[in-house]
Design a protein around this nucleic acid. Structure first.
Lengths: 345, 345
DNA sequence: TTGTAGGCGTTATCAT
DNA sequence: ATGATAACGCCTACAA
């Protein structure tokens, strides 16, 4: 009920000046040991805690990081946990906002966090976002900003991502090596670098194995189980339907799986399937789904570290992009018994 | 690079006093219309935004809510989204901290958020927490605090939860009605009300159907797939093993499922299985797992609303607890063909 | 070693 | 209708 004590109170009680208290608290070299002790004693007694607001106002920094994510699904929650870990250690507090994959919401979040005077941003962009004005505003103020997971093409900022192209390549190459001939890809929204890069990986794998690209097998759809379901239904009703599907997220892979099962086609015999993210769920479904793993927690930590560095020296970090490796985990959904394949043919 | 404009700048440019600008901005009744217009024009030109920090310092409130959750799994992330929605609408920003189910971490989070001078707290307690001193401190300062999902026994605070007992009852009764005779329960950590209440529901269902309680069939274990796996292995190696398992979370149900499959027992013929939460994953695994649904998003919204009310009038909310209904979704994991059952016997 | 005074950006009280 | 001033809690030259 009684308001928290301030240095003023301490000063009054000790009959010394405010500045002396301030110095004593910050353990300055030039304060009398006795004074210091007296102050500390009173600090304990009153349970004094510095007012962060006043500090922030004074120092012009809040020690708070604004984190904007499109959602808090398994992967992003894990990344946020990584960010949190590093931030906490460095004395920062994290404010997490979800854009819900909405461009408008992302702008609102950015503005609100800016108003809250966060010291900087760690951002994974929404799938709707095609215009970067709100982010440019951040840069104009020279406010530190690090992007993670989904970086934006045509927008220079420090960031960390996985090697999406290689991930796409690994998945596709694996399918090819398992004997699949008509490999479809469920790519994400076309404005997302993450989609295009995985798509590029897919294409370069096809090229390597001299498989002709078929535009009918390239489907762009939202990062969403339902969309993937419908997209897959369409794929399966083609005259020359694909014999394998690479979905660039596990959610989408599951949507695809449901559509395939509904058609009573078997995985992996009729249709091979590979996902992306390696979420726990993929090993629980039947058949277990092969998936490209990305180091989510690690990526969060890297993003956090990069933020701290950017905070420290923004110039040197300009446009630095770290790329983390991915690794394909093979499971039943893409393991076609090669003998069967041959006989079939 | 150039610091953001302040009312001071506006005052200087217009050759009027700071206070007039302040009044004009807040649309006070007693300012000259022309002055007001001039100020607004300059506000636009300079893109002036009030400094929230200074405001907060002045008004002694930050319009920020500290949210502490044990983790950000599917259920809690959904709840947080609900909180977020209500908070945003009411002009509050949310700071989410994860305690990682750790008592110590929860204390640290509480302190940090308190230092950040959040206006209040919305909390779901960690599974380790048995002592509430850090929460009592919040109450002593008369800072608004709302609990959600996991409420604490022996601790009076406004909050919202589901009817855990009824949920436990529904799950158990269903198993009984399907002809299962030896029903085990994988309960959570014993200090969590959420565990005990679901356990009570289990017990009262047994009582209703005159089934004798068997302490060997009541297992307390962490909210964790692995623990549930091992606990289930033990259950299955009993001389008189259970013929059904009620796990009080879907994660645990999945752990149980894996253990059952490992033993090559069939679900639901040999062992019936029911989970809790109704996460999407339960309908993806084979067999699909029956589960008690809780309205997570709704609960988040209620928590947010209760917070706003508590903010408004703390007294009237003292100890108010809202209880939301649950609903069992039946799937294959607990649907034992009764004919089969009879023949077996 | 300690104190004084000014300022961070804003609002509220009191004059004018 | 407008201005001057103190205050929110803290820090930091500068002075003593």
């Amino acid at each position: 009920m009684n308001k928290p004590p301030t240095i003023k109170d301490i000063a009054r009680r000790l009959n010394i000046s405010i500045s002396t208290v301030s110095r004593a608290l910050r353990n300055a070299s030039d304060v009398n040991a006795d004074t210091k002790k007296a102050v500390m004693l009173l600090v304990d007694e009153l349970n004094y805690q510095p007012n962060k607001l006043a500090l922030s106002l004074r120092q012009q920094q809040t020690h708070t990081i604004g984190v904007i994510v499109p959602n808090l699904d398994y992967v992003l929650a894990t990344m946020v946990k990584g960010i949190d870990e590093v931030a906490l250690e460095a004395g920062y507090t994290v404010m997490v906002c979800q854009s819900n994959e909405s461009f408008g919401r992302e702008i609102v979040n950015t503005r609100r966090l800016m108003e809250s005077l966060v010291d900087g941003f760690i951002i994974s962009v929404s799938s709707e976002t095609k215009i970067y004005d709100h982010f440019k505003k951040i840069q104009e103020k020279e406010t530190p900003m690090v992007m993670f997971d989904r970086l934006m093409p045509d927008f220079t900022a420090p960031g960390v991502r996985i090697d999406n192209e290689d991930g796409g390549f690994q998945a596709t190459e694996h399918l090819v090596q398992q004997g699949y001939k008509r490999i479809a890809i469920l790519a994400g929204p076309p404005n997302l670098g993450i989609s295009n890069n995985r798509l590029e990986g897919y294409l370069s794998a096809l090229k390597k194995y001299k498989i002709k690209k078929d535009n009918d097998l390239i489907i762009h759809c939202d990062f969403n189980q339902d969309y993937a379901f419908f997209a897959t239904e369409e794929l399966l009703s083609m005259k020359k339907r694909p014999d394998a599907i690479f979905a660039i997220s596990d959610r989408m892979a599951i949507g695809a799986m449901l559509a395939i099962k509904k058609r009573s086609l078997s995985i992996p015999q009729d249709i091979g399937l590979v996902g992306f993210n390696n979420e726990p769920v993929v090993s629980l479904v039947t058949p277990a789904i092969s998936s490209v793993e990305q180091p989510s927690f690690e990526m969060g930590k890297v993003a956090g570290k990069m933020f701290i560095e950017t905070m420290h020296d923004g110039e040197s970090m300009k446009g630095v992009v770290q790329v983390l490796k991915t690794k394909l985990f093979v499971r039943e959904s893409s393991l076609r018994n090669s003998v069967t394949t041959v006989t079939k043919k």
